[in-house]
Simulated scan of single mutants.
Amino acid sequence: MNDDQRGRAPNYTNACIVMFGVNITWILVMIWAIWGLIAAGLLALGLNHLMSRLHVWAAERHAASIRRGKQV
């Protein structure tokens, strides 16, 4: 039996983004409840900085791959 009928994989990007938002929200609320608003704010600020750095690193890696003649 040759069953080569494969469907496309569903795109879970939006669900992943929404669940990231939900998870980070409850984590920040829990930290706020335990240690206060300053700790939650510092964690949020640190995560924002980390995500910004990841974006810069990805852009630099992409630019370097183009200079080498390869697409990442």
Rank of each mutant, 00 (worst) to 15 (best):
Y12D: 09
N23Y: 05
G69V: 05
V29L: 03
V18C: 05
S52E: 14
L42C: 11
S65W: 04
A15K: 03
Y12N: 08
I66S: 05
A63H: 02
G7L: 08
N14Y: 12
I17Q: 08
R6F: 06
H55K: 11
A64W: 09
D4E: 11
L45D: 12
L47D: 05
A39M: 04
V56G: 03
N23D: 10
G7W: 05
W32C: 10
H49L: 12
H55A: 08
Y12A: 08
N11V: 01
L45Q: 10
W32V: 00
Q71L: 15
A59I: 04
A39W: 08
A40F: 00
R61N: 05
Y12I: 15
N14K: 10
L43S: 03
A64L: 07
A9L: 06
I38Q: 10
R68N: 14
G69S: 04
H49K: 13
L28W: 00
T25S: 09
A33P: 00
G36T: 07
A59L: 10
A40Q: 02
N11T: 08
I38W: 05
N11H: 05
V29A: 14
R61E: 04
A39R: 03
A15R: 06
A58W: 07
C16W: 13
W57T: 10
I66G: 01
L37Q: 12
Q5K: 15
L37K: 10
G46L: 14
L28M: 13
Q5H: 12
R61Q: 03
R53C: 02
R53Y: 06
E60Q: 09
G7D: 07
W35A: 14
G69I: 02
D3M: 14
R53G: 02
G7I: 05
I17W: 12
H49P: 01
I17Y: 15
R53L: 06
T25H: 10
V29T: 07
A58T: 09
R8Y: 08
V29N: 09
R8V: 04
R61P: 00
I34Q: 11
L42M: 06
T25W: 01
G41K: 02
H62E: 13
G7C: 03
K70T: 15
V22Q: 03
L45V: 03
N11R: 06
L45F: 15
L28S: 03
D4S: 07
M51C: 13
D4M: 08
M19Y: 11
I38K: 05
L47V: 15
Y12T: 08
N23M: 11
G69T: 10
A44V: 02
G41V: 00
L50E: 04
V56T: 13
G21A: 06
I17G: 01
R53D: 04
A15S: 09
C16T: 11
L54G: 12
I66A: 09
A40I: 01
G36R: 03
W57S: 11
R6N: 13
M1T: 09
H55Q: 02
W32R: 09
I66P: 00
N48S: 15
A9E: 12
A40R: 01
A9W: 07
H55D: 02
D4W: 07
K70W: 04
W57M: 12
G69F: 07
L50C: 02
W35M: 10
I31S: 00
I31T: 00
W32Q: 00
A33W: 14
H55P: 00
L42Q: 01
